[in-house]
Design a protein around this nucleic acid. Structure first.
Lengths: 199, 199
DNA sequence: AAAACTGAACTGACCGGTCGGTACAGAAAC
DNA sequence: GTTTCTGTACCGACCGGTCAGTTCAGTTTT
């Protein structure tokens, strides 16, 4: 299935251009605040091309959500591979921060949509949410099971807390003091947490 | 200035109805995803009445932001009054949680808009943000100054982390296990934090 | 040749804001 | 106390404009 014939490559490139334009614009203006004409413009592509590559604006959006969160989950999992719980948490935060640094627009978008109710794509959102959180929950559960974290630590609440803290800290960092190195922010974030790694 | 004239009372009631309808709908669907017709409908009021009471959809939205965050800041400040840093943090979290419990729609809305850029109301958002965060920063700074918190604790980063953790935990709580009592969630959240209060 | 893309024209639904008009509480005139 | 008047609050049909999505004949790329 690794098509690398010229046509598919071209098509993939176009899709990605549209994709990135859409993420950036929707993060800035929200879904309904963004027009397909704008997306096409920013992608440097004709409007017809957007609809040639995606069934609808909504379909584009759902695909975009799934893709972005899949990437985050994958990077998180590979970052914690083989690490004991304490180090895993630090690694998780590091991965989250650097991910948001690279795909800041996507993080904004995620934050904006994650707790919305009554949407047609509610189902997609829930799936996406679960994918992002479950990595953290697993690490915390392993840590509690091995006695490394105190048993009173509620894995779901803690995972939400970590996730939320990471998101907000990262976005604030990129918005207000983007010159600070990741490590500094990571350390700052870890300092608030009870679960300190040896680092 | 406490006008309790029949007309003014009626008008205030109408404004509040529109207000509440707008918060709920915008939280669910976003600003551009919500139509003025919907707001009027949910408020049980004619569309013209919305524009009679608010200059524009945007003006309504900005007023709504300022009002909501003002309330949060006020409750936070009164919750920490006279408390030493550690207890103040616990109180802050408690206040934040119970605020979000009452005005969940507003919290969603805040989360969705806070890191958006390129909007006409960017200025309003920044003000609102600062108002919410500064309460936390002050407590943290006082704690570091008095030696109660370690000096390596970065107040701004920590404040963002606390704020983000609180928001996300609260929204998850209300969405997925609203039957749990506040205290339990508060305790769960505090357990993740290094800064434990004596309670 | 065929797949991918272009770009402009078009449609029909929808949406923010307007505006002429109505209802009615309370003041003024009697 | 009743009638008349007045301005505020509210109503809802309507207008001008915007936008998602379609269509399609032509162009470029493979």
């Amino acid at each position: 299935m690794t098509e690398s014939d010229g046509r598919t490559r071209r098509r993939d490139a176009t899709r990605r251009k549209i994709f990135e334009a859409a993420v950036a614009l929707i993060a800035e203006q929200g879904f309904s605040g963004t027009t397909v004409d704008e997306i096409a413009d920013r992608a440097g592509v004709a409007k017809g091309t957007v609809f040639y590559n995606f069934a609808s604006k909504t379909a584009l959006y759902e695909e975009l959500l799934r893709y972005g969160v899949g990437l985050l989950a994958a990077e998180s999992r590979s970052a914690i591979e083989g690490l004991p719980p304490r180090e895993a948490i630090a690694a998780l935060i590091g991965a989250q921060l650097s991910y948001i640094q690279r795909y800041r627009a996507f993080a904004q978008l995620l934050l904006a949509e994650m707790w919305r109710t009554n949407r047609e794509w509610q189902q997609t959102i829930l799936l996406v949410r679960e994918q992002a959180i479950s990595v953290i929950v697993e690490v915390l559960e392993a840590g509690v099971a091995s006695g490394e974290f105190p048993p009173e630590l509620d894995p779901r609440i803690s995972a939400s807390a970590l996730f939320g803290a990471g998101l907000v800290v990262a976005l604030d960092w990129l918005l207000f003091s983007p010159e600070r190195p990741v490590e500094e922010v990571q350390a700052g974030l870890l300092a608030v947490l009870r679960t300190r790694p040896s680092l």
